[in-house]
Nucleic acid binder design. Structure first.
Lengths: 171, 171
DNA sequence: CAGTATCCGGTCTGATACTG
DNA sequence: CAGTATCAGACCGGATACTG
Protein backbone atom coordinates (compact mmCIF):
# COMPACT_ATOMS: atom_id res chain seq x y z
CA UNK A 1 0.00 0.00 0.00
CA UNK A 2 2.74 2.46 0.77
CA UNK A 3 6.36 2.79 1.66
CA UNK A 4 6.11 0.10 4.26
CA UNK A 5 6.23 -2.65 1.67
CA UNK A 6 10.01 -2.56 1.71
CA UNK A 7 11.09 -0.52 4.63
CA UNK A 8 9.49 2.35 6.36
CA UNK A 9 11.49 5.54 6.18
CA UNK A 10 10.56 8.77 7.85
CA UNK A 11 12.54 11.80 6.70
CA UNK A 12 12.42 15.20 8.33
CA UNK A 13 9.65 17.63 7.67
CA UNK A 14 11.00 21.03 6.74
CA UNK A 15 7.63 22.37 5.69
CA UNK A 16 8.37 21.90 2.01
CA UNK A 17 6.02 19.36 0.42
CA UNK A 18 8.86 17.32 -1.02
CA UNK A 19 10.36 16.64 2.36
CA UNK A 20 7.17 15.95 4.22
CA UNK A 21 6.41 12.71 5.92
CA UNK A 22 4.53 10.75 3.25
CA UNK A 23 0.82 10.31 3.75
CA UNK A 24 -0.03 7.00 5.29
CA UNK A 25 -3.36 5.50 6.23
CA UNK A 26 -1.95 3.55 9.11
CA UNK A 27 1.05 3.63 11.39
CA UNK A 28 3.80 1.10 10.70
CA UNK A 29 3.35 -0.48 14.12
CA UNK A 30 0.04 -1.48 15.63
CA UNK A 31 -1.03 0.26 18.80
CA UNK A 32 -0.80 -2.95 20.79
CA UNK A 33 2.78 -3.64 19.72
CA UNK A 34 3.98 -0.05 19.87
CA UNK A 35 6.31 0.82 22.69
CA UNK A 36 5.41 4.47 22.38
CA UNK A 37 1.72 3.68 22.76
CA UNK A 38 2.51 1.64 25.83
CA UNK A 39 4.43 4.54 27.33
CA UNK A 40 1.49 6.82 26.61
CA UNK A 41 -0.83 4.39 28.38
CA UNK A 42 1.51 4.32 31.35
CA UNK A 43 2.24 8.00 31.91
CA UNK A 44 0.26 9.90 29.28
CA UNK A 45 -2.23 11.44 31.61
CA UNK A 46 -2.46 14.98 32.90
CA UNK A 47 -2.26 14.23 36.61
CA UNK A 48 0.38 11.58 36.17
CA UNK A 49 2.60 13.94 34.20
CA UNK A 50 2.12 16.71 36.74
CA UNK A 51 3.01 14.32 39.55
CA UNK A 52 6.18 13.35 37.69
CA UNK A 53 7.03 17.01 37.21
CA UNK A 54 6.80 17.61 40.95
CA UNK A 55 8.68 14.40 41.72
CA UNK A 56 11.57 15.48 39.51
CA UNK A 57 11.66 18.70 41.49
CA UNK A 58 12.06 16.77 44.71
CA UNK A 59 8.51 16.56 46.01
CA UNK A 60 7.93 13.21 47.75
CA UNK A 61 5.09 13.47 50.24
CA UNK A 62 1.39 12.95 49.69
CA UNK A 63 0.28 16.28 51.09
CA UNK A 64 3.01 18.18 49.27
CA UNK A 65 1.82 16.76 45.97
CA UNK A 66 -1.74 17.50 46.93
CA UNK A 67 -1.10 21.10 47.92
CA UNK A 68 1.00 21.85 44.88
CA UNK A 69 -1.21 20.21 42.28
CA UNK A 70 -4.61 20.79 43.80
CA UNK A 71 -5.66 17.33 42.68
CA UNK A 72 -8.51 15.62 44.50
CA UNK A 73 -7.03 13.37 47.14
CA UNK A 74 -8.75 10.32 45.72
CA UNK A 75 -7.33 10.98 42.27
CA UNK A 76 -3.86 11.62 43.66
CA UNK A 77 -4.03 8.43 45.68
CA UNK A 78 -4.96 6.42 42.61
CA UNK A 79 -2.23 7.90 40.42
CA UNK A 80 0.47 7.36 43.05
CA UNK A 81 -0.65 3.76 43.39
CA UNK A 82 -0.48 3.20 39.64
CA UNK A 83 2.92 4.86 39.35
CA UNK A 84 4.18 2.65 42.17
CA UNK A 85 2.80 -0.50 40.58
CA UNK A 86 4.40 0.44 37.28
CA UNK A 87 7.79 0.78 38.95
CA UNK A 88 8.15 4.51 38.35
CA UNK A 89 7.79 5.55 41.96
CA UNK A 90 8.80 3.61 45.02
CA UNK A 91 6.78 4.01 48.18
CA UNK A 92 9.06 3.72 51.15
CA UNK A 93 9.18 4.62 54.78
CA UNK A 94 11.28 7.57 55.77
CA UNK A 95 12.25 7.78 59.41
CA UNK A 96 13.58 10.88 61.11
CA UNK A 97 15.12 11.16 64.54
CA UNK A 98 12.49 10.89 67.23
CA UNK A 99 9.54 10.95 64.88
CA UNK A 100 7.61 8.03 63.58
CA UNK A 101 8.15 6.78 60.03
CA UNK A 102 6.30 8.42 57.18
CA UNK A 103 5.77 7.22 53.65
CA UNK A 104 7.37 8.99 50.75
CA UNK A 105 7.24 8.44 47.03
CA UNK A 106 10.65 8.43 45.40
CA UNK A 107 11.51 8.13 41.74
CA UNK A 108 13.02 4.77 40.86
CA UNK A 109 15.70 4.36 38.23
CA UNK A 110 12.90 3.90 35.71
CA UNK A 111 11.30 7.11 36.94
CA UNK A 112 14.56 9.05 36.73
CA UNK A 113 14.96 7.79 33.18
CA UNK A 114 11.97 9.94 32.27
CA UNK A 115 14.00 13.07 32.83
CA UNK A 116 15.04 13.49 29.19
CA UNK A 117 11.40 13.19 28.17
CA UNK A 118 10.22 15.92 30.52
CA UNK A 119 13.15 18.17 29.78
CA UNK A 120 12.58 17.75 26.05
CA UNK A 121 8.98 18.72 26.69
CA UNK A 122 10.09 21.74 28.68
CA UNK A 123 12.37 22.86 25.87
CA UNK A 124 9.61 22.39 23.33
CA UNK A 125 7.46 24.65 25.45
CA UNK A 126 10.29 27.18 25.81
CA UNK A 127 10.82 27.20 22.05
CA UNK A 128 7.29 26.96 20.70
CA UNK A 129 4.70 27.79 23.36
CA UNK A 130 6.09 30.66 25.39
CA UNK A 131 5.42 33.94 23.66
CA UNK A 132 8.48 35.88 24.59
CA UNK A 133 8.40 34.83 28.21
CA UNK A 134 11.90 33.71 29.19
CA UNK A 135 12.15 30.20 30.66
CA UNK A 136 12.23 30.24 34.47
CA UNK A 137 14.68 27.33 34.57
CA UNK A 138 18.00 26.76 32.90
CA UNK A 139 19.70 23.43 32.27
CA UNK A 140 23.47 23.46 32.32
CA UNK A 141 26.51 21.24 32.34
CA UNK A 142 27.99 21.02 35.83
CA UNK A 143 31.55 21.30 34.54
CA UNK A 144 31.46 23.81 31.72
CA UNK A 145 28.32 25.66 32.93
CA UNK A 146 27.22 25.79 29.33
CA UNK A 147 23.54 25.42 28.51
CA UNK A 148 22.34 21.91 27.77
CA UNK A 149 19.78 20.85 25.18
CA UNK A 150 18.08 17.58 24.43
CA UNK A 151 19.02 16.36 20.97
CA UNK A 152 19.72 13.31 18.84
CA UNK A 153 23.20 11.83 19.16
CA UNK A 154 24.92 8.96 17.40
CA UNK A 155 26.94 6.23 19.07
CA UNK A 156 30.06 8.37 19.13
CA UNK A 157 28.23 11.02 21.14
CA UNK A 158 28.01 13.59 18.35
CA UNK A 159 24.87 15.60 17.79
CA UNK A 160 22.83 14.58 14.72
CA UNK A 161 20.56 17.17 13.06
CA UNK A 162 16.88 16.18 13.00
CA UNK A 163 16.89 16.14 9.22
CA UNK A 164 19.40 13.27 9.33
CA UNK A 165 17.16 11.13 11.50
CA UNK A 166 15.53 8.09 9.90
CA UNK A 167 12.97 5.70 11.28
CA UNK A 168 12.95 2.15 10.02
CA UNK A 169 10.86 -0.89 10.75
CA UNK A 170 12.96 -3.66 12.26
CA UNK A 171 13.29 -6.71 10.08
CA UNK B 1 13.18 26.65 53.69
CA UNK B 2 15.35 24.60 51.38
CA UNK B 3 17.97 24.79 48.72
CA UNK B 4 16.07 27.37 46.77
CA UNK B 5 17.23 30.15 49.07
CA UNK B 6 20.37 30.63 47.01
CA UNK B 7 20.05 28.72 43.86
CA UNK B 8 18.16 25.60 43.10
CA UNK B 9 20.36 22.75 42.04
CA UNK B 10 19.16 19.38 40.94
CA UNK B 11 21.86 16.73 40.71
CA UNK B 12 21.43 13.30 39.23
CA UNK B 13 19.82 10.49 41.12
CA UNK B 14 21.92 7.39 40.98
CA UNK B 15 19.85 5.56 43.58
CA UNK B 16 22.32 6.27 46.33
CA UNK B 17 20.82 8.45 49.03
CA UNK B 18 23.64 10.95 48.93
CA UNK B 19 23.05 11.76 45.30
CA UNK B 20 19.29 11.91 45.42
CA UNK B 21 17.29 14.97 44.54
CA UNK B 22 16.82 16.71 47.87
CA UNK B 23 13.38 16.58 49.42
CA UNK B 24 11.36 19.66 48.74
CA UNK B 25 7.86 20.58 49.76
CA UNK B 26 7.23 22.62 46.67
CA UNK B 27 8.55 22.91 43.14
CA UNK B 28 10.84 25.84 42.42
CA UNK B 29 8.44 27.18 39.79
CA UNK B 30 4.72 27.63 40.31
CA UNK B 31 2.42 25.62 38.09
CA UNK B 32 1.09 28.74 36.42
CA UNK B 33 4.55 30.00 35.48
CA UNK B 34 6.00 26.62 34.56
CA UNK B 35 6.61 26.01 30.89
CA UNK B 36 6.55 22.27 31.46
CA UNK B 37 3.14 22.49 33.10
CA UNK B 38 1.89 24.51 30.16
CA UNK B 39 3.14 21.86 27.76
CA UNK B 40 1.38 19.20 29.82
CA UNK B 41 -1.85 21.18 29.63
CA UNK B 42 -1.43 21.48 25.88
CA UNK B 43 -0.57 17.92 24.86
CA UNK B 44 -0.57 15.87 28.07
CA UNK B 45 -3.64 13.85 27.32
CA UNK B 46 -3.96 10.28 26.19
CA UNK B 47 -5.87 10.87 22.96
CA UNK B 48 -3.83 13.91 22.06
CA UNK B 49 -0.58 12.01 22.48
CA UNK B 50 -1.88 9.08 20.46
CA UNK B 51 -2.98 11.45 17.70
CA UNK B 52 0.50 12.97 17.66
CA UNK B 53 2.02 9.50 17.46
CA UNK B 54 -0.04 8.70 14.38
CA UNK B 55 0.62 12.13 12.88
CA UNK B 56 4.37 11.59 13.19
CA UNK B 57 3.89 8.33 11.33
CA UNK B 58 2.24 10.15 8.44
CA UNK B 59 -1.45 9.77 9.24
CA UNK B 60 -3.34 12.90 8.22
CA UNK B 61 -7.00 12.10 7.57
CA UNK B 62 -9.88 12.08 10.01
CA UNK B 63 -11.03 8.55 9.30
CA UNK B 64 -7.51 7.18 9.31
CA UNK B 65 -6.97 8.56 12.80
CA UNK B 66 -10.34 7.24 13.85
CA UNK B 67 -9.79 3.74 12.52
CA UNK B 68 -6.31 3.46 13.95
CA UNK B 69 -7.02 4.88 17.39
CA UNK B 70 -10.58 3.72 17.90
CA UNK B 71 -11.35 7.05 19.52
CA UNK B 72 -14.95 8.24 19.60
CA UNK B 73 -15.48 10.54 16.64
CA UNK B 74 -16.64 13.39 18.84
CA UNK B 75 -13.52 13.15 20.95
CA UNK B 76 -11.28 12.95 17.92
CA UNK B 77 -12.98 15.96 16.43
CA UNK B 78 -12.44 17.96 19.59
CA UNK B 79 -8.79 17.00 19.96
CA UNK B 80 -7.98 17.81 16.34
CA UNK B 81 -9.64 21.18 16.77
CA UNK B 82 -7.62 21.93 19.89
CA UNK B 83 -4.37 20.81 18.28
CA UNK B 84 -5.13 23.05 15.32
CA UNK B 85 -5.92 26.03 17.52
CA UNK B 86 -2.72 25.49 19.45
CA UNK B 87 -0.69 25.57 16.24
CA UNK B 88 0.48 21.97 16.42
CA UNK B 89 -1.56 20.72 13.49
CA UNK B 90 -2.62 22.64 10.43
CA UNK B 91 -5.93 21.82 8.79
CA UNK B 92 -5.64 22.29 5.09
CA UNK B 93 -7.33 21.25 1.92
CA UNK B 94 -5.67 18.60 -0.13
CA UNK B 95 -6.74 18.38 -3.75
CA UNK B 96 -6.06 15.42 -6.02
CA UNK B 97 -6.56 15.23 -9.76
CA UNK B 98 -10.24 14.95 -10.66
CA UNK B 99 -11.43 14.57 -7.07
CA UNK B 100 -12.80 17.23 -4.80
CA UNK B 101 -10.65 18.72 -2.07
CA UNK B 102 -10.46 16.96 1.27
CA UNK B 103 -9.22 18.22 4.60
CA UNK B 104 -6.07 16.87 6.12
CA UNK B 105 -4.27 17.56 9.37
CA UNK B 106 -0.57 18.15 8.95
CA UNK B 107 2.04 18.75 11.62
CA UNK B 108 3.27 22.32 11.73
CA UNK B 109 6.84 23.25 12.56
CA UNK B 110 5.74 23.38 16.19
CA UNK B 111 4.25 19.92 15.86
CA UNK B 112 7.38 18.51 14.26
CA UNK B 113 9.38 19.97 17.12
CA UNK B 114 7.69 17.44 19.37
CA UNK B 115 9.56 14.62 17.70
CA UNK B 116 12.41 14.52 20.24
CA UNK B 117 9.83 14.31 23.02
CA UNK B 118 8.02 11.34 21.53
CA UNK B 119 11.22 9.59 20.52
CA UNK B 120 12.63 10.08 24.01
CA UNK B 121 9.43 8.55 25.32
CA UNK B 122 9.78 5.64 22.90
CA UNK B 123 13.32 5.00 24.05
CA UNK B 124 12.26 5.16 27.67
CA UNK B 125 9.68 2.51 26.91
CA UNK B 126 12.25 0.43 25.01
CA UNK B 127 14.67 0.65 27.92
CA UNK B 128 12.36 0.42 30.93
CA UNK B 129 8.93 -0.90 30.01
CA UNK B 130 9.45 -3.61 27.44
CA UNK B 131 10.25 -6.90 29.13
CA UNK B 132 12.64 -8.38 26.66
CA UNK B 133 10.52 -7.52 23.66
CA UNK B 134 12.78 -5.94 21.05
CA UNK B 135 11.70 -2.50 19.81
CA UNK B 136 9.78 -2.70 16.52
CA UNK B 137 11.34 0.54 15.26
CA UNK B 138 14.91 1.69 14.96
CA UNK B 139 16.16 5.25 14.73
CA UNK B 140 19.30 5.79 12.71
CA UNK B 141 21.50 8.46 11.19
CA UNK B 142 20.87 8.73 7.45
CA UNK B 143 24.56 9.06 6.67
CA UNK B 144 26.35 6.70 9.01
CA UNK B 145 23.40 4.33 9.55
CA UNK B 146 24.36 4.22 13.19
CA UNK B 147 21.66 4.07 15.83
CA UNK B 148 20.50 7.37 17.23
CA UNK B 149 19.57 8.16 20.80
CA UNK B 150 18.04 11.16 22.50
CA UNK B 151 20.47 12.66 24.99
CA UNK B 152 21.73 15.86 26.56
CA UNK B 153 24.25 17.84 24.52
CA UNK B 154 26.18 21.01 25.24
CA UNK B 155 26.58 23.95 22.88
CA UNK B 156 29.48 22.31 21.09
CA UNK B 157 27.30 19.33 20.23
CA UNK B 158 28.97 16.87 22.60
CA UNK B 159 26.94 14.44 24.64
CA UNK B 160 26.69 15.24 28.36
CA UNK B 161 26.04 12.42 30.85
CA UNK B 162 22.84 12.83 32.88
CA UNK B 163 24.85 13.01 36.09
CA UNK B 164 26.45 16.23 34.80
CA UNK B 165 23.13 17.92 34.24
CA UNK B 166 22.14 20.75 36.57
CA UNK B 167 18.90 22.65 36.87
CA UNK B 168 19.01 26.22 38.12
CA UNK B 169 16.43 28.87 38.73
CA UNK B 170 16.98 31.86 36.47
CA UNK B 171 17.92 35.03 38.26
C1' DC C 1 0.37 13.89 58.12
C1' DA C 2 -1.43 10.16 54.89
C1' DG C 3 -4.71 8.56 53.34
C1' DT C 4 -9.91 6.49 52.67
C1' DA C 5 -15.03 7.61 52.37
C1' DT C 6 -18.75 10.03 50.41
C1' DC C 7 -21.43 13.06 47.56
C1' DC C 8 -22.66 15.73 43.57
C1' DG C 9 -22.59 18.11 39.24
C1' DG C 10 -19.93 18.07 35.16
C1' DT C 11 -17.08 16.48 31.52
C1' DC C 12 -15.21 12.60 28.99
C1' DT C 13 -15.78 8.01 27.00
C1' DG C 14 -17.78 4.65 24.11
C1' DA C 15 -21.28 3.14 20.94
C1' DT C 16 -24.27 4.00 17.37
C1' DA C 17 -26.59 6.63 14.14
C1' DC C 18 -27.14 10.24 10.89
C1' DT C 19 -25.86 13.92 7.14
C1' DG C 20 -23.46 16.58 3.29
C1' DC D 1 -15.09 10.54 3.71
C1' DA D 2 -15.55 14.08 7.45
C1' DG D 3 -17.74 15.14 10.54
C1' DT D 4 -22.20 16.29 13.94
C1' DA D 5 -26.01 14.26 17.06
C1' DT D 6 -27.33 11.69 20.76
C1' DC D 7 -27.21 9.02 24.90
C1' DA D 8 -25.84 6.02 28.90
C1' DG D 9 -22.30 5.31 31.91
C1' DA D 10 -17.68 6.02 33.70
C1' DC D 11 -14.55 9.04 35.59
C1' DC D 12 -13.19 13.65 37.22
C1' DG D 13 -13.18 18.00 40.04
C1' DG D 14 -14.25 20.11 44.24
C1' DA D 15 -15.72 19.90 48.90
C1' DT D 16 -15.88 17.99 53.23
C1' DA D 17 -15.35 14.71 56.59
C1' DC D 18 -13.35 10.90 59.06
C1' DT D 19 -9.43 7.72 60.81
C1' DG D 20 -4.80 6.01 62.43
Amino acid sequence: MHILTKRWICPANSGKPGRMIPLSHQSPVSLSACHLAKAIDTIGDRWTLLILRSALFGVRRFDDFQRELGAPRTVLSGRLKALTQNGILEKRMYKTEGKRARPEYVLTKTGMALRPVLIALTQWSDDCLSQGKPPPLSFTDAASRQPIKVAFVDTSGRKVPPSQMRVALRR
